[in-house]
């Protein structure tokens, strides 16, 4: 992909890199400084949050991650409910979003005529452009009441005693509401990536399948999707990363109660939400440091997820460029 000729030409025209034009040397240096600033900024973020979180890490050790009690007044700081809430809401969101996104992507690439595909694609892009806080606003006043009265109450009444995930009173503000709003927010993202990799499936692969007597669906499901799978997984994981770090919308609908409940209808709490809610009011150095440690954990989880996704996407890109 890189043009070896490019470097070669440069090298020939600018006799030697070390002794080249003085202006160009200065230019290269300036560019390099800009380039260096990004890793430096990243390091600085890690360092700054790490330093602030250090007192809490020293004070609580691993118990911070495994502790289930969060009671700042009693100086009890166990972050497990938040980690649980973040992971569960995001994974649920991915479970809702992935099939829908892949369905949309298939519809747009394989089925819809162009006059229909273009506006739908634009509409989903629009969905991605809506600010998180507006999703939250809509969640509070529209989604949560609807979930509560049309979904949760009947389900809880009929199945609550038998199926644990439906048990308990229907609060509306719940893990379920959080997962649904997150899924709406990551759908445009996953479907865009899926659409891109599906479009990149070579036409001859599709034609080979059709020519062998595959139906359109068989062609898509057995040939196009497997071909695009690594990219789709990469997109899904990137979407998961988004969901894990999402703050405003989920804070506004998840109910913000630090419990670990089996029921989807019970309120939950995420790492991002506790930061948004309590950081400004945190009194005492240890409380603040505990919140900093939560920020550090959230940072760590999303970084790991993103690195993983990025490596996958890059591998796909490399394969595509072969």
């Amino acid at each position: 992909m890189a043009n070896p000729a490019d470097g070669g030409l440069m090298a020939r025209l600018l006799p030697s890199r070390s002794k080249g034009n003085v202006q160009d040397q200065f230019y290269r240096l300036a560019l390099l400084l800009f380039g260096v600033s990004i890793p430096l900024l990243f390091l600085f973020i890690v360092l700054r949050i790490g330093t602030e979180a250090w007192p809490a890490m020293e004070a609580f050790g691993w118990g911070f991650i495994t502790g289930t009690e969060w009671n700042p007044v009693l100086r009890e700081f166990g972050a497990l409910p938040f980690i649980f809430g973040t992971v569960v809401s995001s994974v649920l969101a991915l479970m809702i979003a992935l099939p829908l996104s892949v369905g949309l992507a298939i519809f747009l690439t394989e089925l819809a005529p162009r006059w229909l595909a273009a506006p739908i694609a634009f509409a989903t892009e629009l969905l991605a452009a809506i600010p998180s806080v507006v999703y939250g606003l809509w969640g509070i006043f529209v989604l949560v009441p609807w979930l509560r009265f049309t979904i949760q109450e009947p389900l809880s009444r009929h199945f609550g005693d038998v199926i644990p995930i439906f048990e308990g009173p229907a609060y509306g503000f719940s893990m379920m509401a959080g997962a649904v709003i997150l899924s709406i927010m990551i759908i445009p993202f996953i479907s865009a990536v899926t659409r891109e990799v599906l479009t990149a499936v070579p036409r001859d692969q599709r034609e080979a399948a059709l020519a062998l007597g595959a139906t359109r669906w068989e062609m898509t499901w057995q040939v196009a999707l497997p071909y695009a799978l690594p990219g789709i997984i990469g997109g899904a994981i990137l979407g998961l990363g988004r969901a894990l770090g999402e703050t405003m919308a989920i804070t506004m609908v998840i109910g913000n109660r630090p419990d670990i409940a089996a029921s989807l209808f019970a309120p939950g709490y995420t790492m991002a939400s506790v930061l948004a809610n309590e950081f400004a009011e945190a009194t005492g150095a240890l409380y603040l440091s505990a919140l900093m440690e939560i920020a550090l954990i959230l940072f760590g989880i999303t970084i790991v997820v993103n690195i993983f996704a990025q490596l996958l996407v890059w591998r796909v890109a490399k394969r595509g460029g072969r």
Binding site: P202, D204, Q205, E207, A208, A209, L210, A211, L212, G213, A214, T215, V223, P226, Y227
Partner: peptide, 19 residues
């Protein structure tokens, strides 16, 4: 689908599935 099954096709560029 039935038609394409009874008519085999070989393409200009070989296009085996990545399997």
């Amino acid at each position: 689908v039935q038609l394409r099954k009874s008519v085999g096709m070989v393409f200009q560029k070989s296009n085996p599935f990545p399997k």
